[in-house]
């Protein structure tokens, strides 16, 4: 199994520890992932801004970079969703189709491909799970409150399997955090308010560690937590899982 690691641009630059944890966690699960150094970005920031045409060379670069791997794993469901859903704008060559199908969010890869639902290890903290919309509604990694009252999902199961962990019961299980890519600056007021409301739900219900599998949402929420100096630690799920698994 040839696995490539895709580290989205903002993780590469601002959250290298998340990329490192992803690589190490995969290693512990028996997968040696390779990081092709020529990778850049999935192109989503441009496309979501209405500049899909300008993103096409980025898409092509992405496909060329990853076409020879069986899987492309990223600690960001949003980028993966973009590759799977919006690379339909490229000519659907065998390489493009392959890369679209080979792209996996890290947690999705662990659950669906490696078929790992539980992990040994302890994390004795109250953990609030932030479901990223693109992972949840886009990649169907978790149940949606629009469909069912049952709160279930890949990351919830993995976290719940840790010893000593307590998962926060949020009032709104899957409300968007308001990051939304360039939305976070073009609609900065609403974006901030959404993030503040999301964090308030965690504070109200006792979250100590706020986690999720999409670093872009977490970057936004962390920015709000740090600005308001709240006693919440924000960690990517890869950091938690890599930290507890021996």
């Amino acid at each position: 199994m040839k696995v490539a690691l895709f580290v989205p641009c903002y993780i590469d630059q601002f959250y290298p520890q998340v990329g490192i944890a992803t690589l190490q966690l995969l290693e512990k699960l028996g997968v040696t992932a390779h990081f092709p150094a020529q990778q850049t970005c999935c192109g989503q920031p441009l496309a979501n801004s209405g500049c899909e045409r300008d993103a096409l060379p980025i898409y092509q670069h992405f496909v060329q970079t990853f076409q020879d791997y069986d899987y492309v794993v990223a600690p960001s469901g949003s980028c993966v969703y973009h590759v799977r859903k919006h690379f339909d704008k490229l000519d659907q060559t065998a390489a493009v189709q392959h890369v679209r199908g080979a792209a996996y969010d890290l947690i999705d890869f662990i659950s669906t491909v490696l078929k790992v639902d539980t992990l040994p290890g302890a994390f004795p903290h109250k953990v609030g799970l932030h479901l990223s919309c693109h992972g949840q509604r886009g990649l169907h990694q978790a149940n949606e409150s629009e469909m069912t009252p049952v709160r279930d999902g890949q990351l919830r199961r993995l976290l719940a399997s840790l010893d000593g962990i307590e998962l926060t019961h949020l009032n709104r299980n899957d409300e968007c955090c308001g990051f939304g890519g360039t939305f976070c600056v073009s609609e900065a007021g609403i974006s901030a308010r959404m993030g503040q409301d999301r964090v308030a739900d965690h504070v109200l219900n006792g979250t100590q560690v706020l986690t999720g599998s999409d670093m872009s949402c977490l970057m936004h929420l962390e920015g709000i937590v740090r600005r308001a100096k709240m006693p919440i630690r924000v960690m990517h799920a890869a950091e938690i899982l890599n930290g507890v698994v021996a």
Binding site: I11, G19, I20, L23, F35, A37, M219
Partner: peptide, 20 residues
């Protein structure tokens, strides 16, 4: 506009690719 209500990420010394 980011900084109206949010802190920017604390910049790390090296990027992931530099570490790798």
């Amino acid at each position: 506009a980011w900084a109206v209500a949010r802190e920017l990420p604390a910049p790390p010394k090296q990027s992931f690719r530099e570490w790798y």
